[in-house]
């Protein structure tokens, strides 16, 4: 199963809860312009850890921090592959 819809659903839900207006979600959209603040992203990472069982940031060594929505999805696709 693809992680993409799960990530997008979570982004929409968290933005609603946090009352953050979201920009249209495209792969090219920079995360920092999406409307999500760092607290939203922190909640997203924890939610995905619970639903997917992975936290791609919880690794020894360097993790390239995702810049765009596409980067973020790629990071999880790679981690769950």
């Amino acid at each position: 199963m693809s992680v993409r819809p799960i990530i997008l659903e979570n982004i929409v839900r968290i933005a609603q809860q946090q009352k953050k207006p979201l920009a249209p979600l495209t792969d090219e959209l920079p995360l920092l312009e999406s409307g999500l603040d760092s607290l939203c992203i922190a909640i997203l990472v924890a939610s995905l850890d619970d639903s997917l069982g992975v936290d791609p940031f919880d690794r020894d060594g360097d993790v390239a921090f995702p810049v765009t929505i596409g980067d973020l999805i790629g990071l999880y696709e790679h981690a769950t592959a």
Partner: peptide, 12 residues
């Protein structure tokens, strides 16, 4: 607190 790689912690 729950450990978070983004903000150090979040409240749960």
């Amino acid at each position: 607190g729950r450990k978070s790689p983004i903000t150090g912690a979040i409240v749960v």
